[in-house]
Design a protein around this nucleic acid. Structure first.
Length: 591
RNA sequence: GGUGAUGUAGUUCAAUUGGUUAGAAUGCCGGCCUGUCACGCCGGAGGUUGCGAGUUCAAGUCUCGUCGUCACCGCCA
């Protein structure tokens, strides 16, 4: 037996006990006559002490120790003469009687402490050392807890956890596929699933009624702080349910989760239609931790009241959309601060051409960047639309409607951050519903599915499919928390005729639909039940609950920005023999 | 594919207008130290300034190229 206790569990009650511990050397403090060693394992840190009672032989061996050596130590637990209130084991220490060096260690390239001196790149290269740090390990423990809470909730609601294949057929819709060559079928390839979508629908045809899986998915697209090429979904599907049933059940799941993991009651989730979300927040994933809602000022600036007696402001006259937000108490913003905001909205990623501000000063006067065109009476009309008070600052963008909404969304989030309104400890989830079914793809010159081709249109909008497809709303929904898309799903099409019509609108010939999705369409001939489902991004959910901006620290061995694993240096070339077996020939001239 | 930032000691960073021998902290090594817990004190070692060109009397600093890293846009049903 290597140990009787862990390094995190001994307390004052254990004083006098003879114990054996095992762990890593965190730090050695040699005071000359006595030496302290912090011994660390997953559970905590216990102080070892070597003093006047230590044998010469033992003193000899502690001289050889260094950081990250693996030790087994036996001795007696005793109360410290000077306690450390900052650590759980701070009342006791272990007076070491025997020491067994289980393994040595070279000096690690960075310090293995909560506040490490290691940069991201180094930490990833030595990820197994980084994972020894409690802050990183705690994120993975949290991840395990969320998985456990998810399984217990879904199991309790009769969901069957079912594995689906990882080597499947490539479908060109959606993201780029990762592909795997088949040796036994030369020239043919498997694809890794972007999601188990078709399989979970087939499980509904199979009568499983309720399915879930915590499952790896793969998308060969560029990475971001919140996007990895392989990521994990909590994937669910249910039969004989309507949208309302799905929203209610998974709202309960979310509440269960936050209560179990964070001890927070997130209350009833608000629901916002996609149209309202876009008009109010300029985003289909609004951060509703704070207000600062958009006001559409197009009509106001087009009205006689505001036009009267002044030269026309051409930018507004020509704008398809004029929208603004009101930043409470910001009228005192300096020229420099306003210039910063203007620079911010003009960045290419934000894309606005300029920024109009109206300061509603404390004394009730107005100062704006468009004073030349609008007098105080006109600006008051705008301020009144916001129900603004003296001391507030109104920020206005204008131009093409969708572009301006998106830019105003960035500005709102920026102001929210500047004003400290985006508290990581506050969680404001909501449902965004009634997404458009289709969106026009300029490049392909056709409609593509906004969600996926199996999403059902709202029954009352089906007639529009033939006349105005872009207006059709879907039975699709997203779960959004604090401005992050955490999950999404839809009610599926289970009727063959409707599914065929969808494929036709999406530009598939019957032959293409047959070759790509034939097995699903075929299955639908044999009595497919009405069904619906959704999936949550497990990495993002964990990052959200942990308060992290990047999902990397919720993943044990993540990829870097270029999709590489810098620890094992993959991807990597394969041998000519391997290529030959797969009948593959490389042509890297262009690269 | 694009935009921006960045690359200097094992590590995290500094280095003024292009100007002497590239510094600090931490880590590491040696010495001293009996209540430390970021122990303290003294001493020491440690550098291809990512790589390659160019400008210049002189380049860590300026220019070009290249490679890496990070963030974002495109992309991500």
């Amino acid at each position: 037996m290597y140990r009787t206790h862990t390094c995190g569990e001994l307390r004052i009650e254990n004083a006098g006990a003879t114990v054996t511990l095992a762990g890593w050397v965190q730090r050695i403090r040699n005071l000359g006559g006595m030496t302290f060693i912090d011994l660390r394992d997953r559970y905590g840190i216990t102080q070892l002490v070597f003093d006047e009672n230590t044998t010469d032989e033992l003193k000899q061996s502690i001289g050889q120790l260094g950081r990250e050596f693996v030790l087994q130590v036996g001795g007696v637990v005793r109360e410290r003469s000077s306690k450390n209130a900052k650590m759980p084991t701070g009342d006791i220490e272990l007076a070491v009687q025997n020491l067994n060096i289980l393994n040595s260690s070279v000096t690690p390239p960075f310090t293995i402490e909560e506040d490490t001196d290691g940069g991201d790149e180094l930490r990833m290269k030595y990820r197994y050392l980084d994972l020894r740090r409690s802050v990183v390990r705690d994120n993975l423990i949290l991840r395990a807890k969320i998985a456990h809470a998810t399984r217990s909730f879904l199991n309790a609601h009769d969901f069957i956890e079912t594995e689906t294949p990882v080597m499947i057929k490539s479908t060109p819709e959606g993201a780029r596929d990762f592909v795997v060559p088949s040796r036994m079928n030369p020239g043919e390839f498997y694809a890794l699933p972007q999601s188990p979508q078709l399989f979970k629908q087939l499980l509904m045809v199979a009568g499983f009624d309720r399915y879930y899986q915590i499952v790896k998915c793969f998308r060969d697209e560029d990475l971001r702080a919140d996007r990895q090429p392989e990521f994990t979904q909590i994937d669910c599907e249910m039969s004989f349910v309507e949208q309302e049933d799905v929203l209610n059940l998974f709202e309960e799941y979310m509440r269960h989760m936050f209560l179990e993991i964070k001890g927070i009651d997130i209350k009833e989730l608000p629901r916002l239609t996609w149209n309202d979300a876009m008009a109010t927040y300029g985003s289909d994933k609004p951060d509703i931790r704070f207000g600062m809602k958009f006001h559409d000022l197009t009509a106001i600036f087009g009205s006689d009241k505001v036009k009267f007696g002044h030269e026309l402001f051409k930018v507004f006259v020509e704008a398809e959309y004029i929208g603004g937000i009101c930043a409470t108490g910001c009228a005192g913003y300096s020229r420099k601060q306003l210039d910063e905001l203007t620079e911010f909205v003009k960045k290419p990623q934000v894309g606005a051409k300029g920024l109009v501000y109206i300061k509603y000063n404390e004394d009730g006067s107005f100062k704006s960047s468009v004073d030349k065109f609008y007098g105080p009476e006109q600006l008051k009309v705008v301020a009144d639309d916001f129900a603004a008070n003296p001391g507030d600052l109104i920020l206005i963008l204008s131009g093409d409607r969708m572009k301006t909404l998106t830019a105003l969304c960035s500005l709102r989030l920026e102001m929210g951050s500047r004003l400290g309104l985006r508290d990581k400890d506050v969680f404001k989830p909501l449902w965004v519903i009634d997404f458009p079914l289709l969106e026009w793809n300029e490049e392909a010159n056709r409609f593509t599915a906004m969600h996926h081709p199996f999403t059902s249109p709202k029954p009352e909008d089906i007639a529009l499919l033939d006349t105005d497809p872009g207006k059709v709303r879907a039975n699709a929904y997203d779960l959004v928390i604090n401005g992050v898309e955490i999950g999404g799903g839809s009610v599926r099409i289970f009727n063959r005729e409707l599914q065929s019509k969808m494929f036709k609108i999406l530009g598939f010939t019957p032959e293409q639909a047959e070759s790509q999705f034939g097995f699903l369409l075929n299955a639908f001939k044999y009595g497919a039940p009405p069904h619906a489902g959704l999936a949550f991004g497990f990495d993002r959910l964990t990052a959200m609950i942990a308060g992290l901006d990047s999902i990397r620290d919720t993943i044990a061995f993540p990829k870097n920005n270029s999709g590489r694993d810098v620890m094992n240096d993959s991807p990597a070339p394969i041998s000519q023999e391997q290529l030959d077996e797969l009948c593959l020939k490389l042509d890297l001239k262009e690269k």
